[in-house]
Amino acid sequence: MRFMSAPSIGQFIPGESFIHGLDPRCKIVATVILMTGLFMASGIPDFLLWFCLLLLCSALSGIKLGVILRSGRPVLFLVLVTVVMNLLWTPGTELARLGPLRITREGVLLASSMGLRLLFLVIFAGMLMMTTSPMAFSDGLERIMSPLSLLRFPTSEMAMMMTIALRFIPTLFEETDRILKAQISRGADFESGGILRRARSFIPILVPLFVLVFQRAENLAVAMESRCYVPGARRSRMNPLKWRGRDSSALAGLALFVVFAIFCDRYLFKAILAWLAMR
């Protein structure tokens, strides 16, 4: 029986592909560009273009498309709610009617683009996390935010916090799995009874988990201090980040794609549609 498996979403998948080898700063900036582009996308044909980009990412990262798509799974419910809401509550030309519910042409368009946009957002974010080790990610983020430290913003502490948080997600899943198994083998039952009983039945899971987290936190703090960690102190790097030519090329290529996608969405596809409608 599988009780808790570590999340396949957003977990680093080690590899040596082109995308894995890019500078984390490049990948973070690229993701931000992609997200901006996605917010401007609106038509279904445009999302086909974005899907092609996903195929390209899959080829360049050596990660199977199925695995990449799977990172959208946690938001599937949210997407569904968004789609339904937009579908039912958008005024416009009526397509179908079901009692008090009206489905409109505009609703269908809005719902599909909203849903797709959300999915793509999460999937591209997942792509970033799958190809960037947590260490490299927080390193990159720290460097990107470093101008903020002039404003006394604690960038290196923030990055350290993020590193630790990311590092402990899989550990937490493992520990939860262990606790779950221990309680289930003592007959814990999470399925029967009313809401109150079910909520109560999680106490034997949550209490050990909290105790464990606090213990871990304390151990980690002691270990860090015993190795002379001083918040905000200047540290040199073991593997300094290096921005290479291919990082610039990748970013340039991506920017071009986004501009092209927006152009298609705004003018090209509309023009084609208009042309088709005329014939």
């Binding site: 520990e175 262990r178 221990a182 309680q183 289930i184 083998s185 007959g187 106490i203 899971i205 050990p208």
Partner: peptide, 17 residues
């Protein structure tokens, strides 16, 4: 499961009471 009692490697991870 009731017939087969299992004591885990790190028993303290199960304490909650």
């Amino acid at each position: 499961r009731r017939r087969v009692g299992l004591v885990f490697q790190y028993p303290e991870t199960q304490f909650f009471a």
